[in-house]
């Protein structure tokens, strides 16, 4: 499998003292959707800016499609598209004009330019508003226009820095629908930074958790969650009496890792709750213990994050800050 991105002991130090990246090793396979998940200040943006040739690493190496980011920047810039966190379109001209300017910057020749613009406008559902000034667009529309601009270049890999920050849930969903369909159509690799766990969970093939400049864990969402420990099934039982023999019976099942009875609740720790549930219900029925209600809790990425980074993702302050920046920018 060809690698889209590779980093080897990457270090970036700002001004000789702020260590933004502290030895990052990373491999992203071609065609994957890769999420870099971490809190504010973890080094996500720095890593992305090094991979997109905007910054030089202090030490270590990084490659994008086998091109070295330090020595072959111009080759890399020809095959990547990048959407910064803030905003990358001009607000005092129309959406169509933005696309036209970017098409020319990307060097799309005049014969195919119109067609390319039409295509991306259609795929982003923006034909109706293409002649309006970007100033009048909503946050979600601006993002879609930025994606449209990025797609003009038909990139092999798309870098997105916090693609949905400050957007409302429906706009976030719309942006992701577009990104998913883009990925399918072009078989491109998508590399995105986020601090939204649900986004990393839902839309990525692989997740790297980054904290304080270090990658602390790498894997698919499922793998990460499993690594935290098992899932828990909780049975609400009528009355307070469950005999030791019942606990023994449940414990003897090969699917069960542990059983605890406490406060009329029987908690069963299993590898996979969906698979284990039917057989445990059978055991309880056989012992004449009816369950009044059943709930299952699965570990979330937040639990994963807690385990490996030692802290919960704290997002609130960050979002309002960026929303403010975007609002200020839109005002001009």
């Amino acid at each position: 499998m060809e690698l889209a991105v590779e980093a080897r002991s990457l270090v970036k130090v700002y001004d000789g003292r702020i260590k933004a990246l502290d030895g990052v090793d990373l491999k992203v396979e071609m065609g994957k959707v890769f999420a870099l998940l971490g809190p504010n200040g973890a080094g996500k943006t720095t890593l992305m800016r090094i991979l997109t040739t905007q910054l030089k690493p202090t030490s270590g190496e990084a490659f994008v499609f086998n091109f070295d980011v330090v020595h072959h920047g111009s080759e890399i810039r020809r095959i990547v598209s990048y959407i910064p966190q803030e905003m990358s379109v001009w607000t005092d001209i129309s959406g169509y004009e933005n696309l036209l300017i970017y098409a020319k910057i990307y060097g799309i020749d005049s014969g195919s330019r119109e067609k390319a613009i039409e295509e991306v406008l259609r795929s982003m559902d923006m034909e109706g508003v293409k002649d309006n000034l970007v100033r009048t667009y909503s946050g979600g529309m601006v993002r879609r226009l930025e994606i449209a601009c990025a797609l003009l270049a038909k990139p092999k890999i798309l870098f997105l820095d916090e693609p949905t920050i400050g957007l409302d849930p429906s706009a976030r969903k719309a942006v992701w629908e577009k990104l998913t369909s883009f990925k399918k159509d072009f078989e491109a690799t998508v590399f995105f930074n986020t601090h939204y766990m649900d986004e990393a969970d839902l839309y990525s093939d692989e997740i790297a958790i980054i904290n304080k400049g270090k990658l602390v864990k790498l894997g698919s969402s499922e793998e990460l969650k499993h690594s935290v420990g098992g899932e828990v099934i909780v049975f609400g039982i009528n009355g307070n009496d469950v005999g030791e023999d019942v606990l023994e019976a449940v414990r003897s099942s090969s699917l069960v890792k542990d059983v605890i009875f406490h406060n009329s609740e029987l908690s069963v720790v299993v590898e996979n709750a969906e698979i284990a549930l039917p057989s445990i219900i059978d055991i309880l029925k056989g012992k004449g213990v009816p369950a009044k209600k059943i709930s299952m809790t699965k570990p979330t990425l937040d639990d994963v994050f807690l385990k490996y980074a030692g802290t919960r993702l704290d997002t609130i302050g960050r979002i309002s800050e960026v929303t403010q920046v975007r609002r200020m920018i839109r005002r001009g």
Binding site: R78, I83, E86, I105, A153
Partner: peptide
């Protein structure tokens, strides 16, 4: 202004 927004960053990552 373009530095405060992301436009400059984006321009740097184009083939221009």
């Amino acid at each position: 202004w373009e530095r405060e927004s992301g436009i400059l960053k984006k321009l740097l990552v184009t083939p221009a």
